[in-house]
């Protein structure tokens, strides 16, 4: 990395003016040029649920899918942000430009949030080739994964060399978000009891790489062997031509084990390249689940509009009064929504 006299480097030429971003085509061109403020504003519009950007998102989707997306999740306090910081550092050493989407699905009552993950990545704050965006839940139920996916479309259109998606493991939302990722890294810390019991349902199935961080703490080796054993029972573990999820040890604070993680991520990408069939199966499964999510979200949004909201509440009353069952109510709602 270059020495920066004055210690300051602001991406002046790439911030844009912040004025009217222009037509969708102009926006796409701005994104391709890496105009950060255009991208940042667009993500804000996604976050606020602005329906006017749907055609643009469709255009981005048509052109997208080029950038490797690496998902990183784990429980609070597992050291994810520090691990992400170390990954950024290694990728920057390789000359790669990195974008990070840090998603916090925790949703306090007030609808507010404190997004503090950037602190642990502060050493990259003056590096214009690192873009970090934080995203809060805003009280969305299933919609967070969709908003995150749309934000990833924007980042994908900007020509970053790698995109990292960090989420905190507090519920189903982060597993949903990971459906956008090409490589999924699950971070754990040495557990006191049964490490696999401590994993939430579904997490074991979606991980491509498992990391036991804070590996100098007591119980690290036991956690590693417990994870390895559990992974050996995974459905794909018996197939010779499938990716076998490794379990790695890291000490993110000290930067130990990060090289191995970087290599492992690269090896996983290489596996997808050399196994297009498996890759297609995986993408199909992920996209299938995303589409199901999207159907629910679209329906949900349509129900918010005017008389439909009222109709929904009426049907709900019917169900509560046992004049109508759940199956019938859902069918009626769907039929109506399709019109």
């Amino acid at each position: 990395m270059s020495d920066r006299p004055g210690g300051e480097s602001v991406a002046v030429t790439r911030t844009g003016t912040g004025a009217d971003p222009g037509t969708d085509l102009q926006i796409i061109e701005s994104l391709a040029r890496g105009e950060l403020r255009v991208a940042a504003r667009l993500i804000s519009r996604i976050e606020s649920g602005d329906p006017a950007i749907l055609p643009l998102l469709a255009a981005l989707h048509a052109r997208g899918g080029k950038t490797p997306l690496i998902g990183i999740t784990g429980p609070p306090g597992a050291g994810k942000s520090t691990l992400v910081d170390q990954l950024i550092f290694r990728y920057r050493q390789q000359g790669k430009r990195v974008a990070v989407l840090a998603v916090d699905p925790s949703s306090p009552f007030s609808g507010g949030a404190i997004l503090g993950d950037r602190i642990r990545m502060n050493r990259h704050s003056a590096d214009e080739d690192v873009f970090i965006r934080s995203m809060a839940a805003r009280g969305r139920l299933g919609g967070l994964a969709i908003a995150a996916g749309d934000a990833l479309l924007v980042l994908d259109a900007m020509g970053w060399d790698v995109i990292l998606i960090e989420t905190v493991g507090v519920g189903q939302s982060e597993i949903d978000i990971l459906r956008h990722a090409h490589t999924v890294v699950i971070v754990q810390t040495p557990a006191g009891g049964d490490a696999v019991q401590a994993l939430k349902a579904g997490v074991l199935e979606v991980g491509d790489i498992f990391v036991v961080n804070k590996a100098d703490a007591a119980g690290a080796d036991r956690t590693v062997s417990q994870l390895r054993e559990a992974l050996s029972f995974r459905s794909d573990a018996q197939e010779p031509e499938s990716w076998h999820a490794p379990v790695l040890k890291t000490q993110a604070v000290e930067g130990l084990g990060i090289d191995e993680l970087v290599l492992s991520i690269a090896a996983q990408a290489e596996f997808w390249r050399s196994h297009p069939q498996q890759r297609a199966t995986r993408r199909r499964l992920q996209t299938r689940l995303l589409l199901i999510d999207q159907i629910a979200e679209t329906l949900h949004q349509r129900q918010q509009a005017g008389d439909r909201q009222q109709r929904f509440e009426q049907l709900l009353d019917e169900v509560l009064a046992r004049r109508c069952d759940l199956h019938t109510a859902a069918s009626r709602l769907l039929d109506h929504a399709m019109k």
């Binding site: 990395m1 020495d3 210690g7 590096d127 000290e254």
Partner: peptide, 13 residues
């Protein structure tokens, strides 16, 4: 020597 950056603020090499 401890595996960290010389300057915690990454301004000075």
């Amino acid at each position: 020597a401890s595996g960290l950056a010389y300057d915690p603020f990454r301004v000075v090499e």
